[in-house]
């Protein structure tokens, strides 16, 4: 039987899905064990149990100086920035995507400009953003927007262009104006794509968030990681990395579920 026709059964599929996680964990545990056997005070690969204890401490015990549980404050600060940045990107992306995709005049006006803008490496702009918008929240949000917006605009305008011409013609023969076509045909058709674009942008958004927080901040997940790096506190760093991964995964999952709920007519992707 050809390999492309072999499908795993349910138990095997579950086993295969879990396998890479187990392998990575076991490999880490062995590596950590070897190093700790040689030098019990090694900080590079803390034992899984140490990470677990650190995580429990970080999540439950307040900071001695401020009396706040910094873990949760870091989380809310970072999530707030991320939500703001991605939200603004999604909204602007939808507006410009529709303008470029639907209106030939706007396409001529903006499509090439956006294509060029999207080639600017956003991190190269970070110093400018800090100078212009200060070191507060605004510059971090702007960095996320600058980093994710061009992609969302380009993706969405492409998706709008891919709406079958027949549907737009049909809507016109039913008397729809440009505005109504936008509202009743184009927006419902591209909203699932917008959610998809946002899901794909979450990775870059986290990257830009952590980069901005690492350089100038006093709160946030990225800030904390780069702060404790000075003490080689690998257990804290790994806890935060795992937490960020869980958060990002949950967001992705939530968006996918939302998309399926809201747009039952759209075909599923990954």
């Amino acid at each position: 039987m050809r390999l492309i026709n072999r499908k795993p059964g349910r138990p095997l599929a579950l086993f295969l899905a879990l396998l890479p996680f187990v392998v990575v964990f076991v490999a880490y545990a062995i590596g950590s064990d070897i190093r700790l056997a040689e030098n019990p005070s090694d900080k590079l690969l803390p034992a899984p149990s140490t990470i677990w204890d650190t995580a429990a401490r970080l999540i439950t015990e307040p900071d001695l100086r401020s009396g706040r549980i910094l873990f949760w404050h870091d989380t809310t600060a970072s999530l707030g920035r991320l939500a703001m940045g991605i939200g603004i990107s999604a909204l602007l992306g939808l507006v410009f995507g529709l303008l470029i995709g639907l209106l030939p005049i706007m396409r001529s006006f903006l499509a090439q400009f956006v294509a060029v803008l999207s080639m600017i490496p956003p991190l190269a702009l970070l110093p400018i953003l800090f100078i212009v918008f200060g070191l507060g929240e605004l510059s971090k949000v702007v960095l996320i927007v600058v980093g994710t917006l061009p992609f969302i605009i380009r993706d969405l305008s492409q998706r709008v262009l891919e709406i079958p011409q027949e549907l737009l013609i049909k809507a016109q023969t039913l008397g729809a104006s440009t505005w109504v076509i936008t509202l009743r045909v184009a927006i419902p058709q591209v909203l699932p794509r917008l959610i998809q674009a946002v899901r794909l942008s979450l990775g870059p958004a986290w990257l830009f968030l952590i980069a901005a927080e690492a350089i100038a901040s006093d709160l946030g997940l990225g800030y904390r990681i780069f702060l404790v790096r000075r003490f080689l506190a690998m257990d804290v760093i790994l806890t935060y990395v795992i937490w960020i991964t869980i958060l990002a995964f949950l967001m992705d999952w939530a968006l996918r579920t939302l998309s399926r709920r809201l747009f039952p007519w759209a075909e599923d992707g990954l």
Binding site: E166, K170, Q172, G175, P188
Partner: peptide, 20 residues
């Protein structure tokens, strides 16, 4: 100069709105 209410059309496919 553009399609309007006086002309109705049915294509071979994509003639109905999939999201409605």
């Amino acid at each position: 100069r553009e399609p309007g209410l006086d002309r109705g059309v049915v294509f071979q496919k994509y003639s109905v709105f999939p999201h409605m």
